[in-house]
Amino acid sequence: MSKAVSALGGVSHSGFVDVAEAGLRGMITLRGDLASAKMKKAVKAATGTAVPAARRIELNGDKGAAWMSPDELLILVPYEEAVATVEALEKALAGEHHLVADVSDARSVFTVKGAKASEALMKLCPVDFETLAEGEIRRTRAAQVAAAFWKSGADEFTLVSFRSVAGYVMGLLEVSARKGGEVFPA
């Protein structure tokens, strides 16, 4: 029984870059002492990655760990594995002050794909894309709402927003990616 649906049902638009809602993704807020041995072990077990350094995202296939703040990570797993991962993290961190919360259903995920992907995002986010490092996750705003994104491929960004504003974010991306709106036309 597949009762779980993403906010926009995977809608996509094609402009000078392609924008799409990427569907459900397992996401877990993990707060605690990022330097502790238990934390490192727990993250490794959950994602196969190290605890990311400040503003970094460590990716491992369909799993990953992103640095959100000095005491918070975002753990990425396939949607179906979120509940089990929450339990595993809880168990692994038992006895140490921490917080684990499944936020898979509180988020929407988008991809912005194409050689000029950053040209769509630079209309919305006060971020210097030229100095954005490989493997960096940037928490910022997209127009009027909170968002986070990282480079998820050679010509691709993955952007995460709150679920309730998914329609708004898709509206922003669609209009920003419309043909003719290339910021640096060839």
Partner: peptide, 16 residues
Amino acid sequence: AGEARGEIFQPLRKTP
């Protein structure tokens, strides 16, 4: 106003 007009004048939060 930039992009902020029509449907995306301001964020509209929607429940499931």
